[in-house]
Design a binder for these strands. Structure first.
Lengths: 271, 271
DNA sequence: CGTTGGGTTGAACCCACTCAATACGCGTGG
DNA sequence: CCACGCGTATTGAGTGGGTTCAACCCAACG
């Protein structure tokens, strides 16, 4: 049943019981995509290749930013795309009536500004979370270069595709996870992003307040605080003395287990 | 304060009061991006141009699908992209532990499969919601053609960018809206998608069960049902006799007002 | 020292979930 | 034709997870 190659089986199975969607969390649904726990490790050479390709073929400008600085602002004309060379950036989407939502965190090698291509204006604010360097490429130059360097075009497509996958995974988390599991998943994704870039994952510093984390996850700062404390009590994270924003994650797998627990406190039998 | 061109002002303002994120919904935040209520209407020629461009330069196959058929399944090798020529398609993302989430609805002119470019495998199921025609393009052929037809490349970028914007707007809705407002927003987005494609918006048929809508919006079918009934009672939607899936939307603006009410039942004073 | 922003913790409330009963529409078959 | 089953939708009552409101602690800073 968990053979991902034979999809026709699962198709027939799906149409046979469409009542799946009734339950918030399927209790014993067949585990799918189990062969790809995350981006395997092929990612590291991917963005490295992208940066080299860009460095060789496309002129760009470097900018040093500090915490709070805008990489680009929503509404501005989108004539360029950006890549995080160091540091971290968060994207904040907003609505006409003033609601705001953090829709993404961006690490080294991530692109910024894709959301502005469609309308010609950036759709969100991209805000530096600490000091770092941003590379900026004129979009028209990128387009022209893509025509002559197919590899660059492929790299851009991959980057956009990854952005879509990340956004949809966020949607999945917001739509299906209770508070504790959501916070655990948040830390897990963060740690995996660091791991995929070769950085240490056992000593990460959240450069966000509880309120910002809560906004990212669609909940209040108090709930975030309580969830983090519960995780600390159960040992899946450790608060480092000197600041409750530096945490250690002894085991990412343990984090995943905590998330599964919070998801379904009952059936801890499987596995 | 609401001049979107002068962004530096709002930047300074932002850093001055970062406590914005504390509140779930900012009560009197400055309305931003007010000049772009949605995709203006420039969209219609956009996807029409895209289809013509593709028809001229890229060979493709046509497929008739019926409700429940898969356009592509998560985990399958992604060697092609698809475009909805008629009918409707929903994308369903899923996690390794069996959770599922509808992450997007796709109408005429929308692309499918962008999420598969990064990893080489589709990241979600794309399921037809009624009978319709899907056009399928080999991805390698698309890439090759893009190199010689820059306009096609631009069109693809726009399509991917739109996808990202839609996903992030969904994130914003999931993260910041209470149940009633979320359902209203859902219908509003749907109606606007139809309007942008020249179809009538006063008579739309939801081709989803309450459970599927609930899954899309991260809530239960009962809550969806109650929200719809409240909207019907307040007159912003009308249930057509014969089937409670066919509804009329007399005024999209009224829908928006209902959403704002549900968001902040108190301060109905402004505007 | 007082102030200020961030974090934690407690208590009360409330929105949305859960469980359950009922009703409706529709196809099937007697 | 009605009976029956099935999937879907509505509605109610009760519960609970997360919010709200509040107090308090702590570190940084002037």
């Amino acid at each position: 049943m968990h053979a991902p190659t034979i999809r026709h089986e699962t198709v027939a199975l799906r149409s046979a019981l469409p009542a799946d969607l009734t339950r918030r969390a399927l209790p014993l649904a067949q585990p799918r995509r189990s062969e790809a726990p995350s981006h395997p490790a092929r990612l590291t050479p991917a963005w490295r290749e992208a940066l080299e390709l860009l460095e060789q073929h496309v002129p760009f400008t470097r900018r040093m930013l500090h915490a709070g600085d805008l990489v680009h602002g929503g509404g501005e004309a989108c004539t360029a795309l950006h890549i995080v060379n160091s540091g971290m950036v968060r994207s904040v989407n907003f609505s006409a009536d003033g609601r705001e939502q953090v829709v993404g965190l961006h690490f080294k090698g991530d692109w910024l500004g894709f959301d502005g291509i469609a309308s010609g204006r950036y759709g969100c604010d991209a805000i530096a979370m600490d000091t770092g360097e941003i590379w900026t490429f004129r979009y028209d130059t990128l387009l022209r270069t893509c025509a002559s360097v197919p590899a660059l075009m492929a790299v851009m497509h991959v980057a956009m595709s990854e952005q879509i996958v990340r956004d949809r995974d966020s949607l999945l988390a917001l739509g299906t996870l209770p508070a504790d599991a959501r916070v655990a998943n948040f830390l897990k994704v963060w740690a995996e992003a660091l791991r995929d870039r070769g950085q240490r994952t056992d000593q990460i510093t959240l450069r966000m307040t509880r309120a910002e984390i809560g906004n990212t996850l669609g909940m209040t700062l108090e709930t975030v605080s309580r969830a983090l404390c519960r995780m600390a009590r159960s040992g899946v994270i450790l608060f480092n003395e000197k600041g409750r924003r530096d945490i250690s994650i002894p085991s990412i797998d343990a984090l995943g287990d905590f998330m599964q627990d919070a998801l379904a406190p009952n059936e801890r039998v499987l596995q």
